[in-house]
Simulated scan of single mutants.
Amino acid sequence: MEQDRKHFELDPDSDDTLVVSMHTDAIMDLVCSPYEAAALLWVALEAAGKRRPEGPLTIRNW
């Protein structure tokens, strides 16, 4: 359900930004593993950046 998710804009000042959506239970599980959470998010962002016609992502809200 949508209310069970938390959304994070990667660049809040841009109209054309990616939004990371995570389930609140996943966030709670990842709180104990910040390095693993960051690595998983980075891999997902790298993959998304390669598919964007505009090119790689610029992350300003990390």
Results as ranks from 00 to 15, higher is better:
Leu10Gly: 03
Ala26Leu: 03
Val43Tyr: 12
Ala39Asn: 15
Asp13Asn: 15
Thr58Asp: 01
Met1Leu: 09
Asp15Tyr: 04
Glu46Val: 14
Asp16Leu: 00
Asp11Pro: 06
Asn61Gln: 05
Thr17His: 11
Ile59Leu: 04
Tyr35Cys: 08
Tyr35Ser: 10
Ala39Trp: 13
Asp25Met: 13
Glu9Asp: 11
Met1Gly: 10
Val43Trp: 14
Asn61Asp: 01
Asp15Asn: 14
Asp13Met: 11
Leu41Arg: 04
Ser33Pro: 02
Glu54Ala: 15
Ser33Asp: 11
Leu30Met: 14
Glu9Tyr: 05
Val19Gly: 07
Ile59Val: 02
Arg60Asp: 02
His23Asp: 12
Val31Met: 14
Asp25His: 14
Phe8Asn: 01
Asp11Val: 00
Thr17Asn: 15
Gly55Met: 01
Thr58Trp: 00
Lys6Phe: 14
Ser33Tyr: 15
Asp16Ser: 09
Ala26Gln: 12
Asp16Phe: 04
Leu18Asn: 05
Ala44Thr: 04
Asp29His: 07
Val43Ser: 09
His23Gln: 13
Pro53His: 15
His7Pro: 07
Met1Ala: 12
Val31Ser: 08
Gly49Lys: 05
Ala26Lys: 03
Thr58Cys: 07
Asp15Val: 01
Ala39Glu: 11
Pro12Ser: 10
Val31Phe: 13
Pro34Ile: 00
Glu46Ser: 13
Ala37Arg: 00
Thr24Pro: 03
Cys32Met: 13
Glu36Leu: 08
Glu46Lys: 05
Ala37Thr: 00
Thr58Leu: 10
Phe8Leu: 00
Ser21Met: 10
Asp13Ser: 13
Ile27Phe: 02
Arg52Asp: 05
Cys32Ala: 13
Gln3Trp: 10
Val31Thr: 06
Ala39Val: 09
Leu10Trp: 02
Glu36His: 11
Asn61Met: 00
Met28Ala: 10
Asp16Lys: 02
Val19Met: 06
Val43Thr: 14
Asp15Cys: 02
Thr24Tyr: 03
Gln3Gly: 08
Ser21Glu: 12
Gly55Trp: 04
Ser33Leu: 04
Thr58Ser: 09
Trp62Asp: 01
Val31Gln: 10
Arg51Gly: 15
Val31Ile: 07
Pro34Leu: 03
Ile27Ala: 01
Ile59Phe: 04
Asp29Trp: 06
Asp4Thr: 04
Leu40Arg: 15
Pro56Leu: 07
Ile59Arg: 04
Pro34Asn: 14
Trp42Met: 06
Glu54His: 00
Cys32Gln: 15
Asp13Glu: 09
Pro56Ile: 05
Trp62His: 03
Met1Cys: 09
Val43Leu: 09
Ala44Arg: 04
Asp15His: 09
Met1Trp: 09
Trp62Val: 12
Glu9Ala: 13
Thr24Ile: 13
Arg5Ser: 09
Glu2His: 12
Ala38Cys: 07
Glu36Ser: 12
Leu30Asn: 14
Leu40Lys: 14
Ala44Lys: 06
Asp29Glu: 14
Leu40His: 14
His23Ala: 00
Glu9Asn: 09
Thr17Trp: 02
Gly49Cys: 11
Pro12Ala: 05
Ile59Asn: 01
Pro34Arg: 11
Ala39Phe: 11
Val43Phe: 08
Asn61Pro: 00
Leu10Asp: 02
Ser14Trp: 03
Gln3Ile: 11
Trp62Pro: 00
His7Cys: 10
Ala37Asp: 02
Asp15Gln: 12
Thr58Glu: 02
Tyr35Phe: 11
Asp13Phe: 12
Pro53Ser: 13
Ile27Tyr: 03
Glu36Pro: 06
